[in-house]
Design a binder for these strands. Structure first.
Lengths: 241, 241
DNA sequence: CGTCTCTTTGAATGGTATCAAACCCGGTGG
DNA sequence: CCACCGGGTTTGATACCATTCAAAGAGACG
């Protein structure tokens, strides 16, 4: 069995790795103008597990970059059920989709003790030059997000519960790898309920899917600890696009 | 029975109604600077039913505004199945999500004889001022699209097939109303297969859902002709958010 | 070591996909 | 004008997967 250090969240080493410098990891709009973004960075602070970074419907004052730990955004629907919208890892930016209305459209909750950098919105509008840079960055992230959501929609329609979980795990693994974090063996900071909610399923089905993936030899699971055993086979079997 | 004029697609009256002037109908970033966008408008042409406006993976040369008629975008997935991504009505802009890569990510197919205005991409980068305006416009549309996709994801997870169809029809009705087109009684330009694909369901289920909505007195259906009979009750019963 | 929360597993129910056949409508040609 | 044809649509029967309800099991923490 693997001995896991207790509750040590994933962390970025330096500002150079910080997501605000390349808001969308797959974007290459920016060459190396990290310096130009420095003026936008505000103060840092930590958020405890289950604490909210911001509330739905509250006015937006900043963008938030996850420095360490992880978050989920979720909204409460008309029936009072919580729906998980997205998970955020170190380097991810929270609040982009709220910029237009300058009002948060979801709750942001820390999944573990986490550290945050702020990018106050009042820095915008000071200088057209840097405004334009950050605007294009945001645009690029939005494009990525649109693509990701499209992916999710596609999956929700075609793939069964097990395939959706497999995709989720592979995507998570890819994101961890992009951040130079352990991507083959990791600890999920979110519970089965959150995963199920994100995948538009139920916690029982999610749990069964974990078991199924383990039974078929793709992964090893023990509670929140996941090890991806046969990554290529898993992609071959479950990844559609 | 209603006598329907044969195949007369919905149409915009003037450039003032054109979507490029307020790319996202719910956005209010622009005050009234329609004039500033005029230089961006390129030539017009028509597309026949089932003809493609552009192909997936082809390089993007322009944005396309639907002037009359309607379109669907769809992609062929790994299994060779067509997946409908979005439907476009007069005033809608095609190609926004492809801007980052300047490469189309889906096929765009005319659902009926349609008319198109182009916004060639080579107009961009000439003038920072107008670039910035169009950039913000696009950003605003992206925000709207993100919201819509989020809505769809939500529905795919929670609502059953009938509720999803109801939502689809109500949303379509709203979009027609925004364009000052008949919104209570209209002719669907897309077939059951396309609707089913968009809703991540099957044509049989879509058909049954139409029947169910009619049986319960919410709508009247006769092939592609739809009349919304009890709009408020339908919203009350099916619309989640 | 006990308690609480989260997770796993089981059995029954229900919605949707699938397979199959009949039907309707629009268009064509006699 | 009517008969016919073909694509699209409706409806029916069955099978399967996911949800739901229920209970037992594992892990975290004091």
């Amino acid at each position: 069995m693997v001995s896991v250090a207790r509750h040590r969240p994933a962390e970025l080493q330096s500002c150079e790795d910080c997501g605000i410098g390349r808001l969308c990891l797959s974007s290459n709009l920016l060459g190396g103008n990290l310096q130009e973004l420095k003026p936008f960075i505000g103060n840092q602070f930590t958020v405890q597990r289950r604490e909210r970074l911001f509330d739905a419907y509250s006015p937006q004052r900043a963008l938030y970059v996850v420095r360490a730990g992880s978050f989920k955004t979720c909204e409460i629907d008309a029936d009072g059920d919580e729906q998980v919208l997205e998970f955020y890892l170190p380097g991810d930016v929270l609040g982009l989709e709220d910029l237009l209305q300058r009002r948060h459209r979801a709750d942001a909750v820390a999944l573990e003790e986490s550290s945050i950098c702020t990018v106050p919105l009042d820095r915008f509008g000071q200088d057209d030059e840097s405004d334009s840079i950050i605007f294009r960055e945001m645009f690029s992230v939005m494009c990525c997000k649109l693509g990701e959501q499209r992916q999710l929609i596609h999956q929700l329609g075609k793939a069964d519960a097990t395939a959706r979980l497999a995709s989720f795990l592979l995507h998570l693994s890819d994101r961890l790898a992009e951040r130079n974090l352990p991507a083959r063996q990791f600890r999920l900071s979110m519970g089965r309920t959150d995963i199920a909610s994100y995948l538009r399923s139920t916690l029982e089905t999610a749990s069964r899917s974990f078991s199924a993936l383990q039974r078929e030899g793709f992964i090893h699971v023990r509670g929140k600890n996941v090890q991806i055993i046969d990554d290529p086979a898993m992609r071959e079997r479950f990844l559609l696009t």
